[in-house]
Design a protein around this nucleic acid. Structure first.
Length: 479
RNA sequence: UCCUGCUUAGCUCAGUUGGUUAGAGCAUCUGACUGUUAAUCAGAGGGUCGCUGGUUCAAGUCCAGCAGCAGGAGCCA
């Protein structure tokens, strides 16, 4: 058996009492031909391995280069140096894999995030990305734990779908037809009857409609999977491939939905705070250092840890779209005409500058906006009695904007059909969806949460490309 | 997709009104030193100045097109 090692995180938690320990990891630095900072990804903290002078031959020492992989057996003793509690006095050092220092691109110094994106395959070996991806993992685990503990069923909705009626964005087409010479109908259009599925298919833009099918059988379900949007969006908060969590609950109204979303967000943040304290503190420090470069007015008012604590201990501000419009209209910001898009009145769609004003300047906390005008929202949202609004809600977070979008769904078949007709959504194609309203329809609700945006919020990373391992963005799919 | 900006050594950046052989710090390599913590000291190597074209006696520097990246906007999660 090869893997008889102790993870460095566990080693560092021990008291050094000359016990024998086997560790394996990658060299972060090699100082003074004697001190190896070894990292194995279990924590950002390195274990200092001491290769006593004269004990190892030069040929071996020369191969201890940055990012070479080592197996070290030694005894754990209190450190004579000041920078760490313990040393691993090496008895044997085995080079598992050499690393050519002349070609290895990472150095023991600060690199720009832009540069690290160009070497996304190696950036996990930095402290920043080590912390980010350990936190990302914890958030993913916490999500499953939260829903599992509440008795939700984890539902795997399809990645390839045929419905093109959702209007959630541009889609990536899935086909096996030859693109240079596809079979054609008599009128010249492409004949998808000859395609793999016998019809036109695409990558999913949302699992919601399928999720509703699950909710109307299991009661509570959630999905957690990849989602694809072929939008040509070039921003720090959009990806062409991202992960989304979509809970869907039968016997829920809009308020139940908001309560669940708020509890959910708080739960996963608390989980990360309890289990990734070290990584979050590192990221908080990183963010603070980064913000020092910014002018005063662009800096966040709270540090990362402070912000997360604040979210844990303060209720989200809840208000209706109508109330939000009033606040915006009456704001000094608007009266001084500082909005690029002026507040024209009820019915307008909120721009991100408006959302940011509400969240970052007015309330200074996460905000849940509800009951939007029906004209600016999707067909499946439940129509309110006022005839003007729908039971929709968005959760807006400081720094990243919309983090959750959800609604109570229209469960009344006649109303749903009428709305679909108004919006030119072909009911025939969604016959299976409409069946939920035909056979024992129930009030139900759900929401979607962008996993990367949530991870951004928790890690403080300002660019979404830095919280997913291999970001897919326009003109970029190298790794 | 639109607006703005950027692109010079492996990395982070200087580079004057266009003018000889394009610089620095870090990294790398060689040597010295040896309880270091971004180790230190000495030396060396390392460049198609994003690409294509233009103006000029002369272009890293000026102009145009293209590409990529970043920030902002739109779309959204």
């Amino acid at each position: 058996m090869f893997n008889k090692r102790t993870k460095i995180k566990e080693v560092l938690a021990q008291e050094p009492m000359s016990q024998e320990v086997t560790v394996m990891g990658w060299v972060r630095s090699f100082r003074n031909n004697q001190f190896i900072a070894l990292n194995d990804g279990s924590t950002n903290n390195n274990l200092q391995v001491v290769a006593q002078l004269g004990k190892f031959n030069d040929e071996l020492l020369k191969r201890i280069t940055i990012s070479a992989s080592l197996k070290v057996i030694g005894t754990l003793v209190p450190s004579l140096g000041k920078g760490q509690k313990m040393d691993l006095n090496a008895a044997t050092i085995e080079i598992l894999g050499d690393s050519d220092a002349e070609k290895y691109p990472l150095q023991p110094k600060k690199h720009s995030l832009e540069f690290l994106r160009e070497i996304a395959h190696l950036r996990f070996r930095t402290n920043t990305f080590g912390s980010v991806f350990r936190v990302r993992h914890s958030l993913a685990y916490a999500i499953h734990k939260f829903f599992n503990d509440k008795g939700f069923v984890y539902m795997h909705t399809p990645v390839i779908t045929a419905s093109d009626a959702e209007g959630a964005g541009e889609m990536f087409r899935v086909t096996t037809l030859p693109f240079d010479n596809p079979p054609r109908n008599e009128d010249g259009s492409i004949n998808f009857k000859e395609d793999f599925f016998g019809r036109s298919t695409n990558l999913t833009v949302s699992g919601q409609l399928e999720g509703e099918l699950g909710a109307t059988a299991f009661g509570d379900i959630y999905t957690f999977g990849p989602t694809f949007r072929a939008e040509n969006s070039n921003t720090a908060r959009h990806l062409a491939e991202f992960w989304m969590i979509e809970p869907e609950m039968a016997f829920y109204d809009l308020e139940d939905n908001m309560n669940l979303a708020e509890e959910f967000i708080r739960y996963i943040i608390k989980y990360a705070m309890d289990n990734n304290r070290e990584d979050l503190e590192f990221l908080a420090q990183r963010l603070a250092d980064e913000e020092k470069q910014l002018p005063q007015d662009k800096r966040a008012e709270m540090g990362l840890i402070e912000k997360l604590e604040f979210v844990l201990h303060n209720n989200f501000e809840r208000l209706t779209y109508t109330e939000a419009i009033d606040i915006l209209k009456e704001s000094n910001h608007n009266k001084k005409k500082k909005f690029q898009y002026p507040i024209t009145g009820w019915g307008m769609d909120l721009q991100s500058e408006h959302e940011r004003y509400l969240v970052e300047k007015h309330f200074k906390k996460p905000v849940i906006l509800s009951n939007y005008p029906r004209e600016i929202k999707a067909f499946y949202m439940r129509q309110n009695d006022d005839g003007k609004t729908v039971a929709a809600m968005d959760i807006l977070a400081p720094g990243i904007g919309e983090i959750v979008g959800g609604s109570q769904r229209e469960e009344r078949l006649e109303k749903l059909l009428a709305r679909m007709k108004e919006m030119n959504i072909p009911a025939e194609e969604l016959w299976w969806y409409l069946d939920t309203r035909r056979f024992g329809t129930v009030p139900h609700a759900g929401f979607g949460l962008g996993f990367e945006r949530m991870t951004q919020f928790v890690t403080g990373m300002t660019n979404i490309r830095d919280v997913i391992a291999f970001p897919r963005t326009p003109k970029s799919a190298e790794f």
